[in-house]
Design a protein around this nucleic acid. Structure first.
Lengths: 219, 219
DNA sequence: TTCGGTCTCATTGGATACATTCCGGAGAAT
DNA sequence: ATTCTCCGGAATGTATCCAATGAGACCGAA
């Protein structure tokens, strides 16, 4: 027993996790109001842990708090979403470069599985889950925790818009995404860091540019 | 009156600001324990706003909380500090590139003032303040709020170590920093984005590499 | 002497109760 | 009719009290 972590999921954390899940899976849409009292009754707790949970999510960028007024699920406008992608263009290549040398065979196999599953499936929700796991897995061995957390935060805040985008384009242009995923995976297998960095950069940038043309997704 | 911001500095925010200041100016050293009760009496508030303030700072990475145990001022090891610099190497060039085209004459003048003041002064605390203002000012017109906040967070968490480093090297090798600042400022004045990106990247990277040789600063 | 267990106390986590702030609507005056 | 004011209700912010967890000291036995 090496870890002395208190395993007690303290209420604030638990509630924050549940709320985050609800936002990511789309149950709570951007712009939706968050009532402290409502959450308190739903999760069988008092308002205090709820408040702390809301603060946690605010720090992660998933919730916006206005003093003396209330909290809402964060709503990005097109610009803010584009900004997130521009940041991703810069930092995800770094995570990839640090991670590639340490990725093991099992992880490479899992990447291949994910690519196949994405190509086979047509369900949007399923694609979102697989795509996320694929990319985050490529970064998983970076040994830069703070960086990986940062990346995950960026993915989280833009998740609703990735969903809207995926639904909007249908499975129409997905062949390009699949091709890029394959290129990326091949570069990783060859441990070709430079090529992998270029590929992920292009992948994110292309997506960003497509996004910039779909301002209709942001009301 | 355009802003409808509630001007009421609610207690949690106020306390968070004071605490952040205390950490940044060195009054609270990394590793130091944070007692809720003590802060409560010091800031004439109950423990509740203090708790929320601590959570806010935890989200910013300045404080570490262990459930049922307490809170401490975050302590980075050498690796974590190096990671922060590696992330900065990737994102600060972006902020600079976005900001340069929009920097105005007044801001360019202020940059020149800061460079001169840094060269003239010998006081470490003063240098830290000026250096920070200089760099953040070069990013100030990026119009990417989330990016600028991210950069500020990275500066904040590494501030104690920049202080220790500055003290350790004395004013000995500062001429190189000053030279880099001047190069950067010249590139900005010429609106030469590429050159500016290269310069800031090199500036951060060189500092990181120097830092990697001073593991003694981390106990 | 050293290791293990228990006991106590200090500190944090949570619940309830109260104060404060903000928003919207009704009503009156211009 | 429009605008200003005032009031009421609802939701948030804060304080106080209680429960629970963790750390350290003290004591006892090997």
């Amino acid at each position: 027993m090496t870890t002395t972590e208190p395993r007690t999921a303290i209420a604030s954390q638990r509630i924050a996790d549940e709320l985050r899940g609800a936002i990511l899976d789309g149950s709570l849409a951007p712009g939706e109001r968050i009532l402290q009292e409502e959450l308190a009754t739903r999760y069988r707790a008092s308002r205090l842990p709820v408040r702390e949970a809301i603060r946690i999510l605010e720090a992660e960028g998933l919730v916006s708090i206005v003093a003396n007024s209330g909290a809402w699920v964060s709503k990005l406008d097109l610009d803010e979403c584009v900004h997130a992608y521009k940041i991703r263009e810069r930092i995800e290549p770094l995570a990839l470069a640090e991670s590639i040398p340490r990725l093991g065979t099992q992880q490479l196999e899992r990447l291949a599985e994910l690519v196949d599953a994405m190509e086979a499936g047509t369900d949007v929700e399923n694609f979102l889950v697989l795509d996320r796991e694929f990319h985050l897995l490529t970064y998983s061995e970076s040994r830069m925790d703070s960086l990986n957390q940062l990346i995950e935060r960026l993915w989280n805040t833009t998740q609703p818009y990735r969903r809207a985008f995926s639904i909007a384009i249908g499975s129409e242009r997905n062949w390009m995404i699949h091709a890029e995923h394959k290129l990326l995976m091949e570069a990783i297998k060859r441990r070709d860091v430079d090529e992998a960095e270029r590929t992920i950069l292009g992948h994110i940038r292309r997506t960003r540019i497509e996004l910039e043309g779909r301002s209709d997704l942001f009301l």
